[in-house]
């Protein structure tokens, strides 16, 4: 069975078609889900893509958090469903309280649009399962507010619970501990500032994002009943 992945579109989202195309090229059935939807029934995974949801007014993600779809995303996440927030999607997940911390303006106040090297720190997440820790990936970033911030207790917990999913090899934006992506306790909700969908074809300059998208589809496959876990069960 083909995995069905919902790609959430808020007013102002602008990376949804890139994500749909990248997942589609890997064999998934990816579809757009409007932010007014109140159900994610039938989906095996959900992606919150990049952009400027609700214009980023007030703070990035502050208004998107109250879109009807976010209650459905919270329920989906609570049931163990794979949820990935990319860039603005990461900001939305922190504002919604599905991931800890917050994303502040970049140190140095520069909008950053460049390709960076990130290091996979754990395979205990839906985006990195099967990817060896220490793997370095070249993935584009494109953000003004990607400076990950959290208090010391939260940082200690993230480290202890193996929830720092990615670190920048060279910190571009001032993020605490070089953090580029984190997960929730279960590892099924992941947020990251880099855009794996923009590193998913040779013509884009890097294919390093594919390993992450494949890991997500593998997690989605387990949920859709086509994977080994379902067979074993």
């Amino acid at each position: 069975m083909t995995s069905r992945v919902g790609v959430v579109v808020f007013p102002g989202t602008n990376c949804e078609h890139d994500v749909v195309a990248a997942l589609g090229s890997l064999g998934a059935a990816a579809e757009l889900v409007w932010h007014g939807a109140d159900s994610l029934a039938g989906l095996d995974a959900v992606v919150l893509p990049g952009g400027f949801a609700h214009g980023d007014y007030l703070r990035p993600g502050a208004l998107a958090r109250f879109s009807p779809v976010m209650e459905a995303v919270a329920r989906f996440a609570a049931e163990g469903g794979p949820v990935v927030g990319i860039c603005n999607g990461f900001q939305v997940l922190t504002e919604a309280g599905l991931l800890p911390g917050a994303l502040q303006k970049n140190a140095g106040l520069r909008f950053l649009c460049t390709t960076v090297t990130i290091r996979v720190e754990t395979s205990r997440s839906v985006l990195t399962s099967g990817v060896a820790p220490g793997t370095e990936l070249r993935i584009p970033i494109n953000h003004f507010e990607g400076n990950y911030t959290c208090d010391e207790d939260t940082l200690a917990r993230l480290r202890d619970e193996d929830r720092i999913v990615f670190r920048y090899v060279e910190n571009p934006n001032g993020s605490v501990d070089g953090i580029a992506g984190v997960s929730n306790e279960g590892g099924n909700v992941v947020g990251l500032m880099p855009h794996p969908e923009r590193a998913s074809a040779a013509i884009l300059g890097s294919t390093d994002g594919i390993v992450l998208l494949r890991a997500l589809l593998a997690s989605a496959g387990l949920r859709s009943g086509s994977g080994p876990a379902a067979l074993a069960g």
Binding site: L58, A62, G101, A102, Q104
Partner: peptide, 8 residues
Amino acid sequence: RLLSNPVI
């Protein structure tokens, strides 16, 4: 609930 983010 909306105007401020208590994390920062």
